[in-house]
Design a binder for these strands. Structure first.
Lengths: 267, 267
DNA sequence: CGCTAAGTTGAGAGATGTCAAATATAGTGG
DNA sequence: CCACTATATTTGACATCTCTCAACTTAGCG
């Protein structure tokens, strides 16, 4: 119940991975040239030579639109594509046999999903759209094709994966040794930074995920997340109106990341 | 104090990454042909064609011995090598500015360290030997060399990295939503499995790490780890004598991984 | 206009952390 | 070889943080 309800409008309940044949929802094989994409500095093409970007262009990805709540892939699905988020937001999550869910990441425009599937040729997590979104589906076989050997593509992919490892490192740190306040502060600052990189306000934004999803990501219960939001609001660090967040005092929010357990009062 | 003391005999105290010029301790550039290594089925060569293994042999890695407590690399160190453990055990860990340490993995023979460094050309964690150990240092530049393009080497590396991501996934799950008993049970079963793969007993073994290190890895305090060991012993799941562990009832230890929070008694 | 889902808040429970003491073990120096 | 010191581990008593359960509010929707 508790986890399944997160799958919102369209996604069916399920605990056993479905073996869907291939691309499920609205398949729209539009051409999506990386060279002219506004995300090219952030996404997979980042750091590639023009030549390699041309090579990417030649691969002719299909785009796909997903509505809020729709599933991009599930743990256990056969691995064909890695996905680059063009717009919108996704969560990726792991599910234990007893139904407990752990959100392992939130993904915004320019970020790449599905790298955990390379190891065993099956997706190792679920990816679900948190709002109406659009992705590029990049056939992994094309990236690994002998014809692109010698290009920087495989190295770029390797770097992306390493970055993913580093990203998970900080999540480990967070889950392993930080208090609720530290976790939420770190989460908000990280969001803020990524939104800024996309050209949005870093101080005021709309959360795409529920308290329960934030809680799952941070290893907390939704009530604790809610209380911690309220605490930050009372301390004057944030203004919180449901999913609308304004960071009033970024300095002290940063201080909260490595402080809250030690000094109870500051202000 | 608490973290620095773990650095044991030889490693100096430090909180700021040292910029050591290059290979520090005992450098012994012996040839270490992968083709004849007893770990070739587990280590980097796993899944490679004979041809690719030959290519690896041609790279002529250096080996290095480290004594217990010695550092293989530190976060911030320039990235030159990835390391394959030949014998012994390592821990890798992250350190927060305030000194809090998070152990992010324990690594045994056949496992590869340092993949988190690819992203930014600097190591993102520390790696420290927990006992006298031996590693192969594989120059990353050689793996990425144009001359090996088209071989399966880069793909093997990509698979290794993806596997690392998947490994960290389960650690996230563990840290985010499991109880102390579930964490320790999962940890012991994982160790047991890996030791078995190396040809050792899966039911009786010697822990190479302290209670504090286990605790850091599992997001628990050392006292909690100790108490949980005792609890398992009283329940008849384990026999525990300091670092000597015997798994008496593997079935119930497995059951403990997804059970302990729900059913308090089972006997 | 009720209904459902999301969020907030309170009260109390429970798990893990903190502090402290006792024991054991290993390494060190005399 | 032994005393001495530092480190590791275990255990108890207590504190505290987060969870659990529950009520209430609000917003969106049929």
């Amino acid at each position: 119940m508790s986890t399944a309800t997160l799958d919102a409008p369209t996604a069916p309940m399920r605990f056993v991975p479905l073996r869907v044949a291939s691309l499920p929802p609205s398949v729209a094989p539009l051409k999506a040239p990386c060279s002219s994409c506004h995300l090219r500095e952030l996404c997979l093409p980042c750091g590639l030579t023009d030549l390699d970007v041309d090579r990417l262009d030649g691969m002719d990805f299909s785009r796909r639109r997903l509505k809020a709540g729709q599933t991009l892939y599930r743990g256990g699905d056969a691995f064909r594509y890695i996905y680059a988020v063009r717009s919108g937001t996704f969560k990726s999550s792991l599910t234990l046999a007893d139904g407990r869910e752990q959100v392992s990441g939130f993904h915004m425009a320019g970020e790449v999903l599905g790298l955990d599937a390379v190891a065993y040729a099956r997706h190792a997590s679920d990816a679900i759209a948190l709002e109406d979104s659009e992705i590029c589906a990049i056939p992994y076989a094309l990236l690994m094709n002998p014809s692109v050997d010698g290009s920087g593509l495989q190295q770029a992919l390797t770097r992306l994966m390493s970055r993913e490892i580093v990203r998970e490192h900080s999540l480990l740190m967070l889950l392993g040794s930080m208090s609720a306040e530290e976790r939420l502060a770190a989460f908000l600052l990280n969001l803020s930074l990524r939104l800024k990189a996309l050209g949005y306000s870093s101080s005021e934004f709309h959360l795409r995920m529920s308290r329960a999803e934030i809680g799952s990501y941070l290893g907390l219960k939704l009530e604790t997340v809610s209380r911690t939001f309220s605490a930050f609001a009372h301390q004057g660090l944030l203004e919180v109106d449901k999913r609308h967040i304004r960071i009033v005092n970024p300095q002290r929010l940063m201080a909260a990341v490595e402080t809250s357990r030690h000094e109870s009062l500051a202000a």
